[in-house]
Write a protein that binds this DNA or RNA. Structure first.
Lengths: 252, 252
DNA sequence: ACATTCTGTGCGATATACGAACAAATGTCA
DNA sequence: TGACATTTGTTCGTATATCGCACAGAATGT
């Protein structure tokens, strides 16, 4: 790609939009400039452009995003066949298991939910398509990181903030890499309250017909009802069944 | 705003992202140029910029969006207090009603889901935060359009494609305007299978402390279980209760 | 073989970014 | 309260980046 094939004004604008995710709600020009490390004049032009197009509101002092901005992410969910393809299988899986089932893909050091069939709420946070969790401490994240090469997985770990969410959270990179190796050979990952106390989950990879891992699916359950030790025997067969049902559907 | 406070390269790029939502999955440079009505060279630069930043993949021929693009919409859901504020109330409402409860806001002629507590799936399509439906034939849409002035509501109707989704769908603008007037005085809207056969719903507005309508909430139910005539007596009290509980929370 | 459509590139005209300067608003402290 | 220091939003001139157009070559379809 040539130098001139890059529209820096566009790139700067996207950076400004993402700045809203890092804080809350309202941003002044100066705040946005600090977050994006761009010049105040430049940020101002981006924000006024967003306002002009209806992606943001401006009260003369603060900018806030409008729901129109959801069109951008929606463009992905509507345009990508994977979420729609997975959804009915997740519904079925969720019903059979009597627990929530989800699907996600990897974006950098995060997993991003692309589909979900929820039963009762078991987590304190609300997960919907588009929601993000750190990959290193989520069952689907373990599966997706394991599917990468060891070098690449390690590189992502170094870029992650390996936070000790609960006493159970594994934060040692070497230990995690070893766990990825186990996940690769055994074909599943189990998380026992590493993200949040009271929550267990089990995940398996979803491969396309070339054997590339394109997503992960999981089942989450309250630890009080389903101890981590029982996750495998209870849910792995169901997950494997869904995995097998999806395989022939994932051409290309 | 001065002419020079508008970054047209940014605006063009956003248009390119939205182009993906209109079709499916993969776009070539020429296809994107047609959809956006922009010059091919310009679209090419925007797409290469998206690819360079990791928001899109490029196989040399087609561009596809990556899940990274969800960061943009997520910036809104994470940055806006409304979805998080509504969620627990929707959970409670959904549980009491034994049916799905949702919240949405207006974006042009569409309603956009910003939170949802779902029980069994009753619609053929899968609704998640970010999902869009035409406002004119959705219960929350009726409530939100009714909250606008009559002139503004009519203007949106003229911009809408008033499609006859089912034999029940109201498509006459004057009839719809009259219905908005009823909604305004009575404080709720009921849809009897206008969007999809087998689906009824009832919605009420959510106002802030200045009396401005900032969102709508609804309950949807299968027509086979709950005839439209029973929607009001069954669910309106629950909706009003939620509405009242939310009112003091919506400052500003 | 031809017509059509596509992608990539060079170029002149135009739009944008940057840094600096200024004005207005806000905060601080005696 | 008033004087001063900081922060913030806005404007300006200019160097630079981007746009749209036109064209060439490649790919595709007829």
């Amino acid at each position: 790609m040539r130098e001139t094939d890059f529209v820096s004004g566009f790139a700067r604008g996207l950076k400004v939009i993402e700045a809203f995710g890092e804080t809350r709600q309202r941003l002044s020009i100066a705040e946005a400039a600090k977050l994006t490390e761009l010049d105040r004049a430049t940020v101002r032009r981006s924000l006024l452009t967003l306002a002009e197009l209806g992606y943001a509101d401006y009260d003369g002092k603060f900018f806030t995003l409008t729901p129109k901005i959801l069109r951008l992410g929606h463009a992905y969910l509507a345009a990508t066949p994977l979420p729609a393809l997975l959804q009915p299988h997740l519904d079925l899986l969720s019903e059979k298991a009597g627990q929530s089932a989800s699907a996600s893909v990897l974006d950098g050091a995060d997993i991003v939910y692309i589909a979900r069939a929820s039963q009762r709420r078991v987590m304190s946070i609300n997960l919907t398509p588009g929601s993000r969790l750190p990959a290193y401490c989520a069952s689907m994240g373990r599966v997706l990181l394991a599917a990468l090469g060891e070098r690449e997985a390690r590189e992502i770990l170094t870029r992650s903030e390996l936070k000790q969410n609960t006493p159970n959270t594994k934060t040692d990179p070497d230990e995690l890499i070893a766990e990825f190796r186990r996940v690769r050979t055994e074909g599943y990952a189990i998380i026992d309250q590493e993200l949040e106390i009271g929550l267990c989950s089990i995940a398996v990879p979803i491969d396309n017909d070339r054997g590339e891992t394109v997503a992960a699916i999981n089942i989450g359950a309250p630890a009080a009802l389903v101890p981590a030790a029982e996750m495998k025997e209870r849910y792995l067969p169901l997950l494997k069944e869904t995995q097998a049902a999806l395989r022939p559907l994932l051409r290309r």
